[in-house]
Simulated assay, not measured.
Amino acid sequence: MRKLSYFIAGTIDGFIAAPDGTYDFFFPYVTGDFLPYLSDTFADTIPALGRTAMGLDGVPNKRYDTVLMGRATYEPGLALGMASPYPHLRQIVFSRSLTESPDPAVEVTAEDPLPVVRRLKQEDGLDIWLCGGGTLAGQLLPEIDELIIKLNPIVAGSGVPVFSADFALRAFDLVESRSFDNGTVVLTYAKSTLATGGELGADGMPLAPAS
């Protein structure tokens, strides 16, 4: 079965964007030895303009073939003329306010994200990349199999959190940690191997399986 992977840049204090939804303050950290790592391991997550600049046009997808995003994640690129930011991927935007797709390569849906993802997981293909934002990630938390955070060495103070959801503890296992010269650390977590699926009670203890 395909995995849902939430691969996102974040600050030390847990934000993925400024209060206005912009995230260009992460761009200066795509430097040094982190750049070749990103272009090799996560080339699928680089938008079309970046792929062209890095000589990645035509490179086959290795990790993901589908990208999911909320309207707030999609719109900054759209404002810059990128109606189809990831043409090498199947692009799905979840929005109740964006009624028509600006580009035929982008699917816009107002459907509940959970059943959509559950259907996608049953299809053949590579894994599914959730690229943001925090509200969509909060809605999809029960289906997130892998959490990969590019932890940048900055503090934002406020902004869009990694997850925007009601309080509910869920356990993940740290499976890899890599640090880079520019201070960025990439942390890879997998959904906990607890028999309960990783959901914890308010006391931090695993919830008992449903009978």
Rank of each mutant, 00 (worst) to 15 (best):
R2P: 06
K3P: 06
S5Y: 09
G10Q: 12
D13L: 07
G14I: 08
I16Q: 00
I16H: 00
I16M: 01
A17V: 05
A17N: 08
A17G: 15
A18I: 02
A18G: 09
A18D: 01
D20N: 11
F25K: 08
F25G: 06
P28A: 03
P28D: 05
Y29L: 06
T31I: 07
L35T: 10
L35G: 03
L35F: 13
P36D: 09
L38N: 12
S39R: 12
S39I: 06
T41H: 11
F42S: 00
D44M: 02
T45Q: 06
P47S: 02
P47Y: 02
L49F: 08
M54W: 12
D57V: 10
G58H: 06
V59S: 06
P60D: 09
P60T: 09
P60Y: 03
N61K: 10
K62Y: 15
K62H: 14
D65I: 08
R71V: 13
T73C: 10
Y74L: 04
Y74C: 09
E75V: 14
E75F: 13
P76H: 04
G77H: 11
L78D: 06
A79N: 07
L80N: 12
P85D: 13
P87N: 01
L89F: 08
Q91R: 14
I92R: 12
V93H: 13
S97E: 13
S97K: 13
T99N: 01
S101Q: 02
P102C: 03
P102Y: 10
P102E: 02
P102D: 07
P104D: 04
A105D: 15
V106S: 04
V106F: 04
V108F: 00
V108S: 03
T109K: 00
D112R: 00
L114H: 10
V117S: 14
G125L: 03
I128N: 07
W129P: 05
L130K: 07
C131G: 01
C131P: 02
G134T: 04
L140V: 11
L141E: 01
P142Q: 15
P142T: 08
E143S: 15
E146P: 01
I148F: 04
I148P: 02
L151R: 14
I154H: 07
G157R: 00
S158P: 14
S158K: 12
G159P: 03
P161Q: 08
V162W: 07
D166E: 14
A168L: 15
L169G: 03
L174K: 11
E176G: 13
S177V: 11
S179A: 14
F180C: 03
D181P: 09
D181Q: 14
N182S: 10
T184C: 08
V185E: 01
A190I: 11
K191G: 15
T193R: 15
A195C: 11
E199N: 12
G201P: 03
G201W: 06
P206T: 00
S211Q: 11
S211Y: 09
